[in-house]
């Protein structure tokens, strides 16, 4: 590949060597995250059915709550994509608006998830109840912890964006955090399928 430098149309986040390498590095990190979550999925799936006489998922899972969480996170992934679209049209306002919506939806997701966890614990299904619920809370909880992390991280980036505007540095940070956010939705698709659908259809 010849070393033609970027056209003026190239997104800001790709205009520096650091930006390009950071983005590539983040994709490698996401590869490691896939491996991390796969071990939790494997553990969970092996422990399905090991409820030790306690409540099972078919008694506690409720489709309505799961669907609300799923559509909140799915929509937040979409609005996060819109934020990047506006960022590339150099619209700082658009970025703030859509990242704001994304964070609000993310918080909504977290709220419903915490409510769901508290509900399970009240029904006698806690982390220490049985092997099954340990696997459940560790898998779904690790995802929830990632979402919490993402909300805090993106909020900090918004502050920097407010201070410095759209520069190659700040756009790189926004873009990388958007990859992280989309990735969390990808993980949720598999949690929805392997944990909730599986648990309710079984």
């Amino acid at each position: 590949m010849e070393s033609v430098e970027y056209s003026p149309n190239t997104p800001l986040e790709y205009q520096s060597e650091t930006g390009r390498l950071n983005i590539l590095g983040f994709w490698v990190f996401l590869g490691a995250e896939i491996a991390l979550f796969s071990t939790l999925f494997a553990t969970y799936l092996v422990l399905v059915g090991r409820t030790g006489g306690g409540p099972g998922p078919e008694e506690l899972f409720e489709l309505k709550g799961v669907l609300i969480e799923t559509f909140l996170l799915l929509t937040s992934s979409f609005t996060c994509g819109l934020a990047i679209h506006y960022m590339r049209n150099h619209s700082l306002k658009g970025v703030f608006l859509w990242i704001g919506v994304t964070l609000a939806l993310g918080l909504g997701f977290l709220g419903f998830e915490i409510y769901e966890f508290v509900h399970y614990i009240h029904e006698g299904a806690a982390l220490t109840t049985s092997a099954y619920w340990s696997g459940f809370f560790v898998l779904v909880g690790t995802h929830g912890a990632h979402v919490t992390m993402g909300i805090a991280w993106i909020s900090l980036i918004l502050i920097q964006l407010k201070q410095r505007g759209l520069t190659p540095d700040t756009t790189r940070k926004v873009f990388i955090s958007s990859l992280y956010w989309h990735f969390l939705d990808v993980v949720w698709i598999f949690i929805f399928t392997a944990v909730y659908l599986y648990g309710m259809v079984m």
Binding site: W27, V28, L30, G31, A32, I34, A35, F37, S38, T39, F41, A42, T43, L45, V46
Partner: peptide, 18 residues
Amino acid sequence: GTILYAVFIAAAIVAGTI
């Protein structure tokens, strides 16, 4: 390539463990 490799690793871990 990285993501496809990670997906292969994930499939091997999950299917192998089960």
